[in-house]
Design a protein around this nucleic acid. Structure first.
Length: 488
DNA sequence: TTCCTCGTAAACAAAG
DNA sequence: ACTTTGTTTACGAGGA
């Protein structure tokens, strides 16, 4: 799957890909300046986070859940007023777009026609860049009980991607084809008391849920897309991340339902082991499959959340927790199936762990040298989240590469071993479903290392945001003046 | 060039 | 009998 262009090759709508093919280097307008005070504030926050992290160190927590939640909090923080802008809207980076504005604001010249034009041009009637697997995944994840009949999957897709309403009906065949062929999806035995008509309920196989997350991350325009990341052995600088971060695809239901606000991380996240839903804020991709969260997250939330809630109206008010029936630990990405199911592919070699030296170096640098953001190279809010996403993506990809072994680290194009086709290597004589059932399971591996690394990343980002918050408060007036200047 | 993923079409069977 | 659902095979496009 290409990192940039939407995947469709055949019946691509003429306008499809327009947003992708254009310049992908967002431009941002930075705050007036970062100050020593803001840096000190960032340092304080980092210390606070660090203390919380240590305090809860023994808690079980998976990196993704923690990162999701933490980044969620950071996202909340991002609504403090700094601005980002799409390159389509503003290729020169001269204008900004309020992430907290749900619609073009008539009194904001920076959010006027350009904003509307951008949303329309890249709008929802275009073929989404998500693969069918991702679409199905999102649909099922969006269901209250995480299971849906095919018909409702159709409905979800239609509801959120109007493109399919006018598309040839073959897409339904593709959906079914995916459900059958993709190991990530499994049928749930129908409850006799339920009358859903013919067919079965489909759910996400927890064992492969991580694969789907990875697939989402790889999707162009997805905030976690590794395309955002700078594949280097050193952490991407803010500037790098900044300039390599494409905008969210505006057809993303997440994007649309928030009126173009780039809420890149599920609002409904994990709270003390329960999946928390926040329908309005993250109605679609919402809680990317994550696992129970221990007190570490709570500690982080307590520390960071208190900080973040200071002086801003956090949109993230958590709903009463809704326990998922399927809150399992993160499953090792592909590993379980790689050795046994992919024997013919040569991809999964569980006994060949990836050399993590470079990644460890990354974290060392992140923690030690990245706490202080460059005062004049500070990206704006949503793209700070993109920076977070970059780190998260790196962490996640590390897990993936660990699982897949050497040579499997390429973000795209590497073997994605969850398709049922690939399982045929095991035993071509067995029906697919039976092969799947017979597949060997592998216990999830430790996330401690990733957690530590993620901690460094988050601390770094938190520090950045502390600076930004400070900047925001200090330069609100300055920004207004800038807008006035641009208006003229 | 090869391998892989993905989308698509199609055939077929089973279930409702 | 018809529609929907589920499975499977095949093929081509495009990326790595």
């Amino acid at each position: 799957m290409g990192p940039i262009m939407p995947p469709s090759k055949k019946a691509q709508s003429p306008s499809s890909g327009a947003s992708a093919s254009q310049g992908m280097s967002p431009s941002y307008r930075q705050g007036d300046a970062a100050t020593a005070a803001s840096e000190a504030e960032a340092a304080d926050l980092s210390l606070s986070l660090s203390a919380s992290f240590s305090k809860a160190e023994d808690e079980e927590l998976t990196s993704l859940s923690w990162l999701h939640e933490s980044t969620d909090l950071l996202n909340s923080f991002s609504h403090s007023g700094l601005r980002s802008v799409s390159p389509l809207q503003d290729p020169d980076g001269q204008h900004a777009r309020s992430p907290s504005s749900s619609s073009p604001s008539p009194d904001d010249p920076l959010l006027g026609d350009a904003h509307s034009a951008y949303d329309l041009a890249a709008g929802a009637n275009r073929k989404p860049p998500y693969s069918f697997s991702c679409l199905i995944f999102m649909a099922i994840e969006d269901a209250p009980n995480k299971r849906l009949p095919v018909k409702d999957i159709y409905g979800w897709i239609l509801e959120h991607f109007p493109y399919f309403a006018s598309a040839p009906t073959g897409w339904k065949n593709s959906v079914r084809h995916n459900l059958s062929l993709n190991k990530c999806f499994k049928k749930v035995d129908k409850d006799r008391s339920q009358s859903i008509g013919k067919g079965s309920l489909w759910s996400i196989d927890p064992e492969y849920r991580h694969n789907l997350i990875q697939a989402l991350k790889k999707t162009p325009y997805h905030p976690y897309s590794p395309g955002l990341a700078t594949p280097s052995t050193s952490p991407p600088t803010l500037t790098q991340t900044f300039h390599h971060s494409p905008p969210l695809w505006s057809g993303n239901p997440l994007f649309r339902k928030n009126g173009g606000v780039l809420l890149q991380v599920p609002r409904g996240v994990i709270q003390n082991g329960a999946r928390v839903r926040s329908q309005a804020l993250f109605p679609v991709i919402r809680p990317l499959p994550v696992s129970p969260v221990g007190s570490r997250t709570s500690a982080i939330r307590s520390s960071l959340g208190d900080y973040l809630s200071r002086g801003q109206d956090s949109p993230s008010r958590y709903s009463p927790p809704l326990c998922s029936e399927d809150l399992q630990d993160d499953h090792t990405y592909s590993t379980a199936k790689s050795p046994s199911r992919l024997c013919s592919s040569g991809v999964g070699s569980p006994s060949s762990p990836l050399d993590d030296d470079d990644d460890d170096d990354i974290i060392a640098v992140e923690i030690q040298s990245d706490v202080k953001p460059e005062p004049r190279e500070i990206p704006l809010d949503s793209h700070i989240t993109a920076a977070a996403a970059t780190y998260i993506s790196q962490q996640a990809l590390r897990g993936q590469r660990r699982s897949l072994g050497p040579g499997a680290g390429t973000p795209a194009g590497s073997s994605l071993p969850w398709t049922k086709n690939r399982a045929r290597g095991i035993s071509d004589t067995l029906p697919l479903k039976k092969r799947r059932a017979a597949a060997v399971e592998k216990p999830p591996e430790s996330d401690d290392e990733e957690m530590k690394e993620a901690a460094g990343s988050l601390l770094h980002l938190a520090g950045v945001r502390a600076c930004l918050n400070n900047i925001t408060n200090r330069t609100a007036k300055g920004q207004k003046e800038q807008k006035e200047a641009l208006r003229n």
